[in-house]
């Protein structure tokens, strides 16, 4: 399970340039203004989606706990041998599927305020992860 790392390709280079700076980019249609998750390739009428910075804030929609070995220790849940992942509904609207870190699955619930952070599995490109907003 060691050795997993993410490398950029041409299409993802702007995205990973931003994650390296701790910034999450989304896709926005210059025609209709709709904002999409980063992997969206086109809008109804046009293909030239532009990158736009996200606030990095959202709420948890749903989550699950995968009992396969984590792909990388940076993606492991609190017990070290499972991984938690879910959909975070970003303030901008799109759902982002992310690893969920720094959370006991027992505290997760729909609507939980979340913040996007970044990890580098295997020392490769930085990717967004979701973490509960620390209370108080």
């Amino acid at each position: 399970m060691s050795g997993f790392r993410i490398e950029r390709d041409d299409a993802s280079a702007p995205f990973f340039d931003a994650t390296a700076r701790g910034v999450l980019l989304l896709r926005r249609c210059p025609g209709c203004g709709a904002v999409y998750a980063p992997n969206r390739q086109r809008c109804r009428d046009r293909d030239d989606l532009e990158w736009v910075e996200a606030s990095g804030k959202g709420v948890l929609v749903t989550w699950a706990v995968d009992h396969q070995d984590p792909l990388d220790p940076s993606l492991a849940g609190p017990d070290g041998h499972t991984s938690v992942f879910g959909f975070v509904e970003l303030a901008e609207g799109p759902w982002l599927q992310v690893p969920i870190v720094d959370a006991d699955p027992g505290v997760l619930c729909a609507g939980l305020p979340m913040v996007v952070r970044f990890v580098r599995p295997g020392g490769g490109e930085a990717i967004p992860v979701g973490a509960p907003v620390a209370d108080g």
């Binding site: 790392r5 490398e7 993802s12 699950a64 490109e125």
Partner: peptide
Amino acid sequence: AAKGLAAMAAASG
């Protein structure tokens, strides 16, 4: 190693 946003999806569950 895996490439691009598809690899990020795999890391995301």
